[in-house]
C-alpha cells in the first residue's frame, strides 16, 4: 500500500510523456496562438521583469501549464487572465485595465495627441490673420 501511494503521487507530480503543457504546444493551433498571446502578457511573479512565456522560473512554468490547460478546456483568454488577477492582483497582468486607477494612464496619451493637434492648428491659424 505504501509503495503504491508513493508511486501514484510520483505519477501525479510528473505527468507522462506528451502531456505537460508547461513546455508543449497545444494540438489546436488557434488555441495555442491564444495561449501564447496570453502568456506574453502575464508577468512572472518570481523574476518580475519578464512575462511568464520567457521565464525559466518553476512558478512561471506552472502558470504556463495552467494557461494552456484552461484554454484547451475552452476558457477564453480574458477569463483566465481575470482568474489570475483574482489571485495575484492587477500586478500580474501586463495589460492594464481601464478603470479609475488607470484613467490617467489611458487619458494622458489622448490629451497629448489633442494638445499636439491644438499646437498644430494654432501655428497655422495665426498666419492667416
Amino acid at each position: 500500500m505504501r509503495r503504491f501511494l508513493i508511486a501514484a503521487t510520483l505519477c501525479l507530480a510528473q505527468p507522462a510523456f506528451g502531456q505537460d503543457y508547461a513546455e508543449e504546444s497545444l494540438p489546436d493551433v488557434n488555441q495555442e496562438t491564444q495561449a501564447v498571446a496570453l502568456m506574453d502578457t502575464l508577468r512572472c511573479v518570481v523574476c518580475q521583469g519578464q512575462p511568464i512565456s520567457g521565464s525559466n522560473a518553476d512558478l512561471a512554468r506552472d502558470m504556463r501549464r495552467l494557461v494552456r490547460e484552461r484554454i484547451a478546456a475552452g476558457e477564453s483568454p480574458e477569463t483566465v487572465r481575470a482568474w489570475l488577477v483574482s489571485r495575484y492582483g492587477q500586478w500580474v497582468s501586463l495589460k492594464p485595465e481601464v478603470n479609475e486607477l488607470t484613467a490617467p494612464l489611458w487619458l494622458i496619451p489622448l490629451i497629448a495627441l489633442g494638445g499636439a493637434g491644438l499646437l498644430y492648428s494654432r501655428r497655422f491659424k495665426r498666419k492667416k490673420k
Binding site: D40, T41, Q90, W91, S93, L94, K95, L101, L105, A112
Partner: peptide
C-alpha cells in the same frame, strides 16, 4: 509622452497610492 507615461505610471501609482499595476506590451 506615451512611452514616458507607460513607463513611469506604475511607479507613480505605487509611490502615491501603494497600488501595484503593470504596464506592458498590450498598452
Amino acid at each position: 509622452v506615451v512611452v514616458m507615461v507607460g513607463t513611469l505610471y506604475p511607479l507613480a501609482l505605487e509611490a502615491f497610492t501603494g497600488q501595484k499595476i503593470s504596464v506592458g506590451a498590450p498598452f
